[in-house]
Write a protein that binds this DNA or RNA. Structure first.
Lengths: 195, 195
DNA sequence: GAGCGCTCTTGACACCGTCAAGTCCGGGGA
DNA sequence: TCCCCGGACTTGACGGTGTCAAGAGCGCTC
């Protein structure tokens, strides 16, 4: 599925580069030249450098939300682990997007309504699951704390995995999914209905 | 305690800048000019741009380790929460260091022995506490998973707090320490000896 | 007092993001 | 049919940045 428009071409090339080398060394000109157009052509599709990162973040959040919903749907008996697993899998399989999405210096959601919307939706999915897990009698404070805890655990694990020192410190990871399951178990947040 | 040497001056200016604006926009020349020296003077103290970030990371890891040890010492009854609290407090109070330490694209520990040493030491402190928490009969796999879980939770919470969308999504945070305690509670990792 | 190494300066280079203007071209109204 | 008009892209320029190379000032030592 080769990208057709220049916009898609640039976006894909940028995501691929970021997945390999991180977002900071990304040269806008290089991407344009590699696509066979002049160094200024992409600026007709994105207002500025930030514009590209915001477009990547929006695309990323859409895939991200879909990934989480799919995983929860596939494992309704343990939504917390499903969420953690989806978070990590997304980060690993879409590093290019992930590395941009949570970097407000690259793409600030505050002044981009579309990005604000999709990132809010991602968070909604999480909170809905926490509601589901804690039940209807849970206090607002508990829901808030549990959502923060689950988000932190997932985000930290994902970050430490894709470009953090985790593998370097704890040794090679044979099965990522097994690690995710063990982490969910060791934190108290896996489904309580243990077999 | 004003920095004396040019090396210290540059380091402090860089850390302050990063704490405010993030590491990416940091201009080496600007820092030098602001310090009243030529644009090339700092390069005599650091091999290149990466060299500054590595120096910041080393300094950061030393403060970081000391912060964790101090917190554990002050709250021996609940080392997990103490660790989480120290992690977050360090990230908030030393953003400039924190934002650099866990960004391998800025400072790769693999080719800097000193950085390798201090970052390894940070991780040791964590693993020692996990040993303490799980007791001597814990399996290696459990220790590994618990350490990963605690690190992920702490790292994720810290990242989401200092420049992530956490406060934007869950609303204003009145007491950071209360949030940290609630998160430790909601994850199953606080000390089991509940009051 | 001559040599030397450390600290810093000066100048140049390629590259980057961005502003401004010009070129090409297809499509719709006269 | 002609015109013109607006979007897609090119070309050129500017200031800023990291880095390489060479040189200047200066305290220390032999």
């Amino acid at each position: 599925m080769a990208p057709k428009t220049l916009r898609e071409t640039v976006l894909k090339a940028a995501v691929d580069y970021i997945a390999e080398n991180g977002p900071d060394g990304l040269s806008f000109r290089q991407v344009a030249l590699a696509a066979g157009v002049s160094h200024q052509a992409p600026y007709h599709h994105f207002s500025d450098r930030k514009g590209i990162f915001e477009a990547i973040a929006i695309e990323g959040h859409e895939i991200f939300t879909a990934t989480m919903l799919g995983s929860i749907d596939a494992h309704p008996e343990d939504p917390a682990t499903a969420l953690l697993d989806a978070y990590v899998e997304f980060a690993v399989n879409h590093r290019g997007h992930f590395r941009v999405m949570f970097r407000p210096d690259l793409c600030s959601a505050t002044d981009n309504p579309e990005l604000l919307r999709v990132s809010g939706r991602s968070f909604e999915v999480l909170v809905e699951q926490v509601h589901e897990i804690l039940g209807p009698k849970a206090s607002v404070a508990d829901i808030r704390a549990r959502a923060t805890a689950m988000w932190s655990l997932a985000h930290g694990l994902a970050v430490l995995l894709i470009d953090g020192p985790l593998e370097h410190e704890i040794g090679p990871i044979k099965s990522r999914r097994a690690l995710v399951r063990a982490v969910a178990e060791q934190s108290g947040m896996a489904a309580k209905k243990r077999r």
